[in-house]
Amino acid sequence: KKYKVVEVKENKDGTVELVVENENGEKKKITLSKEELDKLKAGDTVELK
């Protein structure tokens, strides 16, 4: 499934919390490390299994 990044929030521990949404409007929260996030920004599309 493809999800669009709608919100990006940095946590104090250096991880980043993303809120992503698919075309049905379903939202998910995922947490990434700073390194994983470096290639993402709001409006990008991510694929989740």
Rank of each mutant, 00 (worst) to 15 (best):
V16H: 05
L48S: 01
G25L: 03
K2R: 06
D13Y: 03
V16S: 04
L40R: 02
D38M: 07
N11S: 09
K27Q: 13
D13K: 01
G14T: 02
K34V: 11
K2I: 07
L18F: 04
L48C: 15
K27H: 12
E47L: 05
N24G: 09
E21C: 13
V8Q: 04
L40Q: 01
G25W: 01
T31E: 05
G14C: 14
E47W: 08
D38L: 08
L18M: 08
E23T: 07
Y3P: 01
E26Q: 08
S33N: 13
A42P: 15
N22S: 12
K41F: 04
V19T: 12
E17S: 08
N11V: 07
V5G: 00
L37C: 15
K4F: 11
Y3R: 00
V46A: 04
L48R: 00
E21N: 01
K12Q: 13
G14P: 00
E36K: 12
V6N: 02
T45H: 12
T45L: 14
K12H: 10
V8E: 04
N11H: 14
L18R: 00
T45F: 14
V8Y: 06
Y3F: 07
K12F: 10
K2Y: 09
K41I: 07
K39R: 12
S33V: 12
K27W: 10
V16T: 08
E47H: 06
D13E: 03
I30R: 00
E21L: 09
K28C: 15
E23I: 06
V16E: 00
N11D: 04
N22K: 05
K28N: 08
V6K: 04
G43F: 02
E7L: 08
E21A: 09
K4G: 02
V5L: 07
D38N: 13
V20A: 05
N22D: 13
K34D: 05
E7S: 13
V46G: 11
E36T: 13
E10K: 07
T31K: 12
K39E: 13
E21S: 06
E35Q: 10
L18A: 05
T31W: 11
K1E: 12
T45M: 12
E35R: 09
V6G: 01
L32M: 10
V8W: 09
A42H: 10
V16G: 10
K28T: 13
E21F: 04
E21G: 01
E35T: 12
K34C: 12
T31G: 03
N24D: 09
E23Y: 05
E7T: 12
K12L: 08
I30H: 03
N11C: 09
L37H: 08
T31H: 13
T15F: 05
V46K: 01
V16N: 02
A42R: 06
N24W: 12
K29W: 13
V19L: 11
K1W: 04
T15C: 07
V8M: 08
L40N: 04
E17Q: 09
K41T: 04
G14F: 02
E26H: 09
S33M: 15
K49N: 15
K28W: 11
K29I: 11
K49T: 15
L40P: 14
K27C: 07
S33Q: 14
K4W: 09
K49D: 15
K2W: 07
V6H: 04
G43R: 01
L40S: 05
V16L: 06
K34F: 13
L37W: 11
V5R: 00
V6M: 10
E36S: 14
N22C: 14
V5Y: 02
V8C: 14
Y3I: 04
L32R: 06
E47I: 14
K27M: 12
L18S: 00
D13L: 02
G43P: 02
L37R: 14
Y3T: 01
D44N: 04
N24T: 09
E23W: 06
L48Q: 03
K39F: 12
E10Y: 09
G43A: 02
D44G: 03
E26M: 07
L40E: 01
N24Y: 11
E7V: 11
E10V: 08
I30S: 01
K41A: 06
L37F: 10
K4L: 13
T31R: 05
E26C: 14
E7W: 06
E26W: 05
E23M: 06
